[in-house]
Design a protein around this nucleic acid. Structure first.
Lengths: 356, 356
DNA sequence: TTGAAAGCGGTACCAT
DNA sequence: ATGGTACCGCTTTCAA
């Protein structure tokens, strides 16, 4: 049958307690004894029973990583980085130590988010990391905050990555992307190039990332005294960008630039422009957010705001592990940086040296 | 402190056994009793202790999904589909039922693959799904097979998705993509268009997908009596495709088409061609494998083989759940289909109506 | 239909 | 430095 700790103890001629100590390395054990125990472990090919330890120790080695869309590299990059950061934790031995970092796909659904949190609570997870923008619905926010509070006082470490802190929540360590400043810089760049008719393709109306990026965009326009162009909302996916583009061009056929709330959306914008016989960036310049290698490299003319997804993921992993100290006030803002690619993307007829 | 089953029992005026029965729904309980118990559960906001149930029941509700690269939509699509298929399983109640589907990122490393399998074994996972091509190293294959055998006789259901069955393994249900036929069809298509000098960018040398796709490619060439063009190996990522392209063009500057073992790689190929001032598909046609919406939509001229990633993921999830019966012989081959996009991609000077 | 109680496999405190 | 041994919270016979 399956080998238990008691079997190992018998084989090594020691007590179960000693085996436990050797495996967990949290208590002094004579070198000779340790050797015998480890030998027995190998010979019997013993694998500890996770649930049993979790029950006894009142905590498990599971770390949950919640993402809105697992098929989007935006989350893949963050989650992957977090997972490696967490994997570094323990030794390679058969004994405990290593955490099991697991990613859970909410599909952007608030219900599934809560379901997963409950599941992780049930597992007595060591930590949970919530990534990406969240819904702004007050009801859901309250429910989430309550759930996170329960998790926290159940001993689960909570980390928010790429989403703002919850109102009234003090337990979660937060890494927030500076979406406002990033979006602002993106639009400022287009303005400097001479663009005056700029469309905007936004994400779902009720998400924090959507709102913050839109705010940054508008702030740039307002500061420059340029009137706001047409905007269209949609999902954070390609087809949404495609459809929104038709809408924008219908509202203003003279657009010279389009800002997309997300690189994936930007790809859809590009596709729509091509299908209408417009070239990028000669007819219309396109700017995106995220700088995902996958999508952006395919359109070298894209101007983009880069989010340090990988770095944020690593830090989130360390916060979950407790390796990195919580940021002051529980919140750290991760900056976003502007990336300008192959082409300058000036509107037609605009002098090449204008705009500084 | 935290609410236990006993608390619920007290509140409802019944025994712990009864509460357990109500929550698991696997035993008849009087309707009135059930009501009282469920009420108590709600009032106390009871969340079952997962490790405790897993220990007692000798199985957990964890389902592990192993992927080679979580930042690659190829795996994201499959994993996401599998996860939803698994989520459908149980009811929404506080009680048991729902499985926790978790994706684990191996990064393509055999060691991490084994580590995750051990971790899942330790958790007494209900099922594990291994996705994507595997290493062909005999040592690793044997180790994996052994590990999977242990998992299986520990009660864990094993599903292989997008990778061939292990030699001598009878326990795993397998869904394999028809990589050979897909690659063959891709190359046949280029041949029909008139291409005669075709380069090939392959994946890592020791992976099953790499070998099978290359075999299909060569089979098509051999059948047509066309000599094999240059080939270059690399990772399954964009920069690898970029570098390989320089290599291929150095080996044969007269290439009219390049086949990439993967869409992500194909994107790198496209980037390299653009940087050399070559247009797609007028100077060089590019063909890829996978048909990921992300990358492929960015290059409408790309000819591609589409793998039904989503469907495979769903089926893998059902197999893991036991909802779908195992395929005959334990193995089902999932077909691959050819997708031809915007351009015909004929080589220059080739008559438009040639080749059928 | 319901209750009582014996585990499930470790952990950690208390002895020695 | 090591052993003995009550739990941890739930499942599952066995009785009633």
């Amino acid at each position: 049958m399956t080998v238990t700790l008691a079997d190992v103890a018998d084989r090594a001629g020691v007590s179960p307690a000693t085996v436990s100590r050797v495996l967990n390395g949290n208590y002094p054990v004579a070198a000779a004894t340790r050797e015998r125990v480890l030998a027995a472990v190998d010979e019997l090919d013993y694998v500890p029973n996770g649930p049993a330890s979790s029950l006894a120790a009142a905590t498990s080695d599971l770390v949950g990583i919640l993402v809105n869309d697992i098929a989007d590299p935006f989350f893949g990059i963050m989650a992957g980085a977090a997972q490696s950061a967490i994997g570094e934790g323990g030794p390679g031995r058969a004994g405990g130590g290593e955490k099991l970092a697991v990613v859970c796909n909410t599909g952007g659904s608030p219900e599934r988010e809560l379901t997963y949190l409950t599941l992780l609570q049930r597992q007595r997870a060591a930590a949970v990391i919530l990534t990406g923008g969240s819904l702004e619905d007050p009801g859901h926010l309250a429910a989430t905050a309550a759930k996170l509070a329960r998790l926290a006082d159940g001993g689960t470490r909570v980390v928010l990555c790429g989403r703002p802190p919850l109102p009234g929540d003090t337990t979660a360590a937060t890494l927030a992307f500076d979406n406002r400043a990033g979006a602002r810089r993106l639009t400022e760049h287009l303005l400097e190039l001479g663009h005056r008719r700029i469309g905007y393709v936004a994400g779902p109306a009720d998400r924090t990332t959507t709102r913050h990026r839109l705010e940054g965009h508008r702030a740039a326009l307002a500061a420059a005294g340029v009137p706001e162009g047409p905007a269209a909302h949609g999902r954070y996916d390609r087809s949404s960008g495609y459809e929104a583009t038709s809408e924008l061009l219908r509202l203003d056929p003279e657009l010279t630039a389009i800002v997309a709330a997300n690189d994936t959306v930007a790809l859809g914008v590009c596709a729509a422009l091509r299908d209408r016989g417009l070239s990028i960036p000669d007819d219309v310049s396109v700017a995106g957010f995220d700088d995902l290698p996958f999508s952006v490299d395919a359109v070298p003319a894209l101007t983009t705001v880069r989010l340090p997804l990988h770095e944020a993921g690593v830090r989130a992993g360390r916060l979950a592990l407790g390796t990195e100290p919580a940021p002051p006030g529980g919140l750290a803002t991760v900056p976003a940086e502007l990336v300008v690619r192959g082409s300058t993307g000036r509107p037609r007829g605009w002098p090449a040296d204008a705009g500084g």
